[in-house]
Simulated scan of single mutants.
Amino acid sequence: MTFKAVADLDLCQGHQMCQGEAPDVFGFDEDADVVVVLRERPEESLRPQVTAAVTYCPAMALAIEEE
């Protein structure tokens, strides 16, 4: 099963916690002050990091969609 990393830019508050948890998947746009999804469909081996990023996002702006 594959999954998709999703970010809601309307909810993102620029805390950058996601970068600390999953730096291969989430980046940051300094100008817009919001998260950037670097790898929308990361490999399964990155699921624990993406799950942690979703869990610890203070703004609850991240999600995993199963495909």
Score class of each variant (00 low, 15 high):
residue 35 V to F: 06
residue 53 A to S: 02
residue 53 A to W: 01
residue 8 D to A: 05
residue 20 G to V: 13
residue 21 E to V: 12
residue 28 F to A: 11
residue 9 L to G: 03
residue 65 E to N: 07
residue 55 T to K: 14
residue 30 E to S: 11
residue 66 E to T: 00
residue 58 P to Q: 08
residue 1 M to T: 08
residue 49 Q to F: 14
residue 51 T to R: 14
residue 18 C to K: 00
residue 13 Q to M: 13
residue 62 L to F: 03
residue 65 E to V: 08
residue 62 L to K: 02
residue 17 M to L: 10
residue 44 E to C: 00
residue 36 V to I: 14
residue 6 V to G: 07
residue 30 E to L: 01
residue 62 L to P: 01
residue 17 M to S: 14
residue 45 S to H: 07
residue 45 S to M: 03
residue 53 A to L: 04
residue 63 A to I: 02
residue 21 E to I: 03
residue 5 A to D: 00
residue 34 V to L: 09
residue 63 A to S: 15
residue 51 T to Q: 15
residue 54 V to H: 02
residue 62 L to Y: 06
residue 43 E to M: 08
residue 15 H to M: 03
residue 48 P to T: 01
residue 25 V to N: 00
residue 67 E to T: 10
residue 43 E to T: 04
residue 52 A to Q: 14
residue 67 E to G: 09
residue 65 E to H: 07
residue 30 E to H: 12
residue 1 M to Y: 02
residue 67 E to R: 14
residue 33 D to T: 09
residue 2 T to E: 12
residue 33 D to G: 10
residue 3 F to C: 01
residue 19 Q to L: 15
residue 23 P to V: 09
residue 56 Y to C: 08
residue 28 F to L: 08
residue 19 Q to R: 11
residue 53 A to P: 00
residue 47 R to G: 00
residue 42 P to T: 04
residue 20 G to R: 11
residue 36 V to D: 06
residue 29 D to Q: 06
residue 55 T to L: 13
residue 18 C to Q: 01
residue 57 C to S: 02
residue 27 G to Q: 10
residue 15 H to A: 10
residue 9 L to Y: 09
residue 46 L to W: 06
residue 31 D to H: 14
residue 60 M to R: 15
residue 29 D to H: 08
residue 33 D to H: 12
residue 27 G to F: 02
residue 9 L to F: 08
residue 9 L to C: 09
residue 33 D to K: 15
residue 32 A to H: 08
residue 33 D to I: 05
residue 38 L to H: 05
residue 20 G to K: 12
residue 48 P to I: 04
residue 17 M to Y: 11
residue 7 A to V: 05
residue 2 T to R: 14
residue 5 A to L: 02
residue 45 S to D: 09
residue 5 A to G: 06
residue 14 G to S: 02
residue 3 F to A: 04
residue 54 V to M: 00
residue 50 V to I: 10
residue 14 G to Y: 08
residue 65 E to M: 06
residue 39 R to S: 08
residue 21 E to T: 11
residue 58 P to I: 05
residue 51 T to I: 06
residue 39 R to H: 09
residue 21 E to M: 15
residue 40 E to P: 10
residue 51 T to A: 15
residue 35 V to W: 04
residue 44 E to Y: 01
residue 16 Q to C: 11
residue 66 E to K: 04
residue 26 F to G: 08
residue 13 Q to K: 14
residue 5 A to V: 08
residue 37 V to H: 07
residue 52 A to E: 11
residue 11 L to Q: 12
residue 14 G to P: 03
residue 12 C to E: 07
residue 46 L to S: 00
residue 31 D to G: 12
residue 34 V to G: 01
residue 35 V to N: 09
residue 25 V to W: 03
residue 36 V to C: 05
residue 29 D to G: 06
residue 4 K to D: 04
residue 23 P to D: 08
residue 34 V to H: 10
residue 32 A to Y: 12
residue 28 F to T: 11
residue 59 A to R: 01
residue 33 D to W: 10
residue 52 A to Y: 05
residue 3 F to K: 02
residue 64 I to G: 04
residue 66 E to S: 03
residue 25 V to P: 09
residue 54 V to L: 10
residue 22 A to T: 04
residue 35 V to A: 11
residue 31 D to W: 13
residue 25 V to H: 05
residue 50 V to G: 01
residue 67 E to D: 11
residue 31 D to T: 14
residue 32 A to D: 15
residue 13 Q to F: 05
residue 11 L to Y: 07
residue 35 V to S: 11
residue 6 V to W: 07
residue 17 M to A: 14
residue 32 A to F: 10
residue 41 R to P: 00
residue 8 D to R: 01
residue 17 M to D: 13
residue 51 T to V: 10
residue 42 P to S: 03
